[in-house]
Amino acid sequence: MGKGVWIVAEQREGAFRKVSFELASTARKLADQLGEEVSAVLLGSGVEGIAGQLGKYGVDKVFVADNAAFEPYTTDAHAAAVAKIVKENDPSILLLAASAQGKDLAARLVGKLATGMASDCTDIKIDGGKLVAVRPMYAGKCYGEVVVSGSPQMASLRPNVFPVVESAKAGAVNKFDAGLDAAALKTKVLEVQKETGGTIDVSEANIIVSGGRGMKGPEGYGILEELAGVLKAAVGASRAAVDAGWRPLKDQVGQTGKTVSPNLYIACGISGAIQHLAGMSSSKYIVAINKDPEAPIFQKADYGIVDDLFKVVPEMTKECKKLLAE
């Protein structure tokens, strides 16, 4: 078994995504326990300049491959490059982000490196020199502790879970040649369509801001759309609101509408009839805003605000804007 804790850093348009720092910080912690170094792989086009930033979060070495073929991300190019450098250096641990890109890349690397991986981990530690990853299973109904016997021991980390810790290290930049074979690059990204809030379908959204009878009319949805815009969320509606003609049928969440399971469901002016709950109760987090403290939705909500939604929602929009700008 090799040595070193490695991460695959993720950047988009020449800027690191926050999860890269989470990876670096976590890798640092593990490496300190093992007495090993932290190395990062950074792929992109014209990204050499940012590579050094990783040193701040505990990365000793950054292996950078700069190639136009890395932008935009394709599995073929990235997996080939990471596999090559990882094989050459034989680390003991390889961490990736469980982001949209990271999930795709990590799974392919499992195949290329013929090893095992714990996906989407929420905790990670070293026990007896071995990596022990903790990850939710069965949609979070139980957790598994995973040990990987292959090499490297791979894990992907759920974004926004691990803390970002500064601990200055060299962050020495080493360029490497990914040795890409153009013929092996089979998939092509034809187009990148940026999403804005509101255009996202409720069934695919990670965050849904939903309004019911309490919206009082179609014009009430303006404030929900604003909040959704900030959160890159979809706007949903209850049956009552759709029946009243305030919102289109495609936005309806519930037994007779769409069944959704976003990470966050913000229910505004929705009392929470069973038909509605059947369509959204598997959401990871539920926020309820309703004037009626007896509304059944509060029994399902993780966070509840008993107040006038027309006062609360605009304040949330302001607050979220502020938080997301940080």
Binding site: T256, G257, I274, Q275
Partner: peptide, 19 residues
């Protein structure tokens, strides 16, 4: 389709809501 969902719920959890 909403009735298909109901039937699936009845098949899998023996109630129309799928609880």
């Amino acid at each position: 389709p909403e009735l298909q969902l109901t039937y699936r719920n009845m098949e899998n959890n023996s109630n129309p809501w799928g609880i």
